[in-house]
Amino acid sequence: MIANILDGIIFGIQLGLWAAGLTLIYGLGGVLNLAHGQIAVISAMVLAFAMDAGLPALPASGLALLVGGLVGLFLDLTILRPVYRLQGEARVLLSLLLTLGFAFIVDGFLNWRYPGRALSLFIGGGAIDILGVPMRRGSLLASAITLVAFAALFSFFRFTTLGRAVRSVIEDEEGARLVGIDPARIMRLILVLSGVLAALVAVTRSMVVSVDVQAGFGITVLALIVTVVGGLGSVSGALLAGIILGIVNVIAADVIGTFMSLVVLLLAAAVTILIRPAGLLGVEE
């Protein structure tokens, strides 16, 4: 049981990271990025090829993060342009369609060019005992990196002027404009940031299991579930929801079977929405 919960927490911290980028973009501008997982996969492939070419893991990971950020910037500068011109529901729908199209193109291309290609960052060394449970070093390192990333995100939003500016656009876009904040520039910044976070998903995930060219939609779907449960626009909600769903997932897989765990997660999300429509830490409109 303790082993299950620990596994769940470790997976949950990951899930939180998967959702963080997605929830920020949605909270900020009502834009749903269904290519989130594909950004992670692109970054994973860059990392795999960079290491094949002889680059050590650390600089190669840095390169992957850079590419993730650039893909985010690319989306902002291209297919999201028409999206920004719309408001409300139309904006959500168009962003959903266009990013889904981009995701299919990326998926199709990668599967055709690099079928079966996968990234795994092998972290050597024996298991480490935590509460009497032996844990793999790769999982622990991935969790530690993710938690550091969350700490950095929280400090950014709490203590920096730019971070507060991002929150202000989420809370009241017109109010933000009135104090001199350009929402379009904040949106660009967050797309870059969410691209970097997606790349970090690839890096940390590949320390635990291998990330293959087809992993994109799986990541996006789980990230969406976590985003909805956590509350749209709330990074702390993403982390909390991630950990809860991570535990639910591991226990469901253990009790019912892996094939059912996604269904259980969807059920948990549905129940959350029925009880708290805005999500765990979301704000009712």
């Binding site: 500016a165 929150r167 009241d172 109010g175 933000a176 001199g180």
Partner: peptide, 18 residues
């Protein structure tokens, strides 16, 4: 058009943005 979940001080600080 205040920022409801931010403190009074944070609202004021943002007034001086950037």
């Amino acid at each position: 058009r205040l920022f409801p979940r931010m403190t009074v001080r944070e609202n004021l600080a943002l007034g001086a943005y950037p």
